[in-house]
């Protein structure tokens, strides 16, 4: 038999590309799913919030209790965010750049808040600081209120959000190694100069990314805060708790109006996250690759 010439059907595109009906079906399923479970609720939030018009929307937001909830949420984030940034940088620094005993234990501990339910996190603080808790009587003697007060809310939020910055920075710092820091030291830089001029600029996008996530979580936390807050209106009510209260009182327009604020925050966070992710990837690529366009204009 003579061998026939081999004819290959060369299709443009990758070999892994699916035929278009399959692709269309998959995309369709994904689209319907996203529409049903993400876009529709999102539209519903704003739809419900504005169901009784702009005036009702504005009234719900300018209600003194709502105002106080906004203030408390912002205050909590304002305390938690800087603390987490400092903790995250310190922990990531220690883990990425030094070898020490108990390193894996520290890593596990950092992940702990992700592993336990937020409700449990809140409960831990009640058990420690509550009136019947270990430190309760001692704190009561000095008139310090932690549970059912602002400090408890801050502590619970801190616990829940503490892995976010560290988790973001550890792989970044590990991949960067210690050579640049060593170079700075050999060139005569003191520890502080090394940190501000070399370490921090190298991790800035990752740090900002972690901070954005941390902020979103701090403002949106419900479970842990719900346990320690006591739901005292105007005093220990955060935005998420306020939404719940309004909803339970059948004040739907008000609940959704406040919820729309948190939704807006989520949207802003997503956009910022997207931008930063692109930035981190871009910086990472520029650092690895050879000649290319200027990676960073503002140094």
């Amino acid at each position: 038999m003579t061998s026939a010439p081999v004819t290959a059907v060369v299709r443009p595109g990758r070999v892994t590309a699916e035929p278009w009906p399959v692709r269309g079906l998959l995309l369709g399923i994904a689209g319907v799913f996203l529409g049903l479970f993400l876009v529709l609720p999102l539209v519903a939030v704003f739809g419900q919030a504005l169901a009784k018009g702009w005036e009702a929307y504005w009234a719900a937001l300018s209600d003194p209790d709502a105002r106080s909830a906004i203030r408390l949420t912002v205050l909590t984030a304002a305390i938690v965010l800087p603390l987490n940034v400092v903790f995250g940088v310190a922990a990531a620094w220690a883990i990425a750049k030094f070898e020490f005993r108990g390193k894996s234990l520290l890593l596990t501990l950092i992940d702990l808040p992700f592993a336990v339910s937020p409700v449990i996190s809140g409960l831990i603080y009640v058990l420690v600081f509550g009136a019947q808790g270990w430190l309760g009587p001692y704190l009561a003697a000095y008139g310090i209120k932690v549970i059912f007060a602002v400090p408890g809310i801050v502590l619970a939020t801190l616990f829940v959000t503490c892995p976010l910055v560290a988790r973001e920075l550890i792989p970044l710092m590990q991949s960067q190694g210690t050579e640049e820091e060593e170079a700075a030291l050999v060139l005569g830089a003191r520890g502080g100069q090394m940190f501000w001029r070399v370490t921090l600029p190298n991790i800035r996008w990752g740090l900002l990314y972690g901070a954005v996530l941390c902020n979103a979580r701090a403002m949106g936390e419900f479970g842990a805060v719900s346990v320690v807050s006591g739901h005292i209106r105007g005093l220990t009510n955060t935005l998420t708790l306020h939404v719940e209260i309004l909803y339970n009182e059948y004040s739907f327009a008000g609940a959704f109006a406040v919820a729309s604020l948190l939704t807006l925050l989520a949207l802003v966070t997503l956009v910022a996250k997207q931008l930063l992710e692109w930035r981190v990837r871009h910086a990472g690529r520029a650092a690895r690759a050879g000649p290319g366009p200027a990676p960073e204009e503002a140094a």
Partner: peptide, 8 residues
């Protein structure tokens, strides 16, 4: 590996 400051 040179250890140049990549952001400078």
């Amino acid at each position: 590996h040179y250890a140049l400051f990549r952001h400078m």
